[in-house]
Design a protein around this nucleic acid. Sequence first.
DNA 1: CTTGACAGCTAATCAGAATTAGCCTATAAT
DNA 2: ATTATAGGCTAATTCTGATTAGCTGTCAAG
Lengths: 209, 209
Amino acid sequence: MDTKATKQRILDEALTLFSEKGYANVFVGDIAQRVGIKAPSLYKHYKSKQAIFDAIIEEMNNRFIAQAGALNISGVDAGADADVYKNIDEDRLVKMGISFFEYYLHDDYTRRFRKMLTIEQFHDKELAAVYSKQYIDDPLSYQGMLLGLLVAQGILATDDIGTMTLHFYAPIYLLLTVCDREPDRQEWAEGTLEKHIRQFNKIYGRSVR
Amino acid sequence: MDTKATKQRILDEALTLFSEKGYANVFVGDIAQRVGIKAPSLYKHYKSKQAIFDAIIEEMNNRFIAQAGALNISGVDAGADADVYKNIDEDRLVKMGISFFEYYLHDDYTRRFRKMLTIEQFHDKELAAVYSKQYIDDPLSYQGMLLGLLVAQGILATDDIGTMTLHFYAPIYLLLTVCDREPDRQEWAEGTLEKHIRQFNKIYGRSVR
DNA sequence: CTTGACAGCTAATCAGAATTAGCCTATAAT
DNA sequence: ATTATAGGCTAATTCTGATTAGCTGTCAAG
């Protein structure tokens, strides 16, 4: 009974192709070939090419809901640890930023989905909203929460957590888009990222004002 | 003799459409219609749809070369003014960031071109490189130069101009992508931008270390 | 005046791609 | 054992959209 497997593989291969060429440049035959079946057979699983796309979007919604739960938990953990390890603040911060970056960069599903949305974001308002939510607003609010904890603990100082969070996240976002576009620059990005976070820590760290 | 005019209008209308729907979703008939001619007539001006796209890329190269000259001059000016107006440092910085942002956001040609590249950036390495150059590396190096002047004048302080520039530019870039995607958020972006720059100034301003 | 290139048009042509029709086999439930 | 269904296949079908052919009017150079 790998009917579900096939149905899933279609989504998977379609996502890969959509993320590389964009929806319009992918033919159902391409998807089918990758799955190992013929184009018409796809229609036993999905009503149309568009339905495949829609299913991908929906699947992602589910994943993100699940993932949000997971991240929240890890976020709370990070906060709980804080009191204990005050002496390794900077490294913790670096680690937080880098692990966020690496996760977004290397998690295959996340990466392909992000690239697909990048290509399709101007297609309609709904996709635009999904993009902004996933890659701008949610990260800002999530990391804002984490950084807020560090502020509450006196590890970081600012009177505007929102802007501070933007300062933390915007470079991460920028570097991520560079790596999506030019994987060759990953090493450069990682180095730049670490310098960014260390400087961020110097700037907002309690030591300075 | 508006043959040149027609040829130019084709590029212009094509750019508009490509920036909204992406190359693959635009039909030569659409472009022709906007120009006010029939599809086959386009071929009197360009060999193929691809040739239109290529011409757009090339035109942009020329514009950017011209523009680079212009920006450099204005950059030097900004530096020259600096000694005189030390008392309005923050406002100058805010103005610099905002005017950069507003220019990129509102200049019609720039905006359409950027959106088109956003959609097509994964198509091949060349386009990827163009994107990174135009919207990442060149802005960083240009603004790095300007900020470098302010550092040299003792208005800003840092031991890592590159990272400081990233801190200055990354939020601008992020907000720009939001506005391209959701023009409704422009007002929010402008407010956020100003807060960003004021905080940036507080952080890197000579007053603090 | 007339000729040639230009820029437009209509009517093909040609190819590529999504989708449908209709057939076949395995398998799981009755 | 029988049958219904799922999931695959090949061979249409149908559309869409880029490009080409071939005609025409205009206009500037001679």
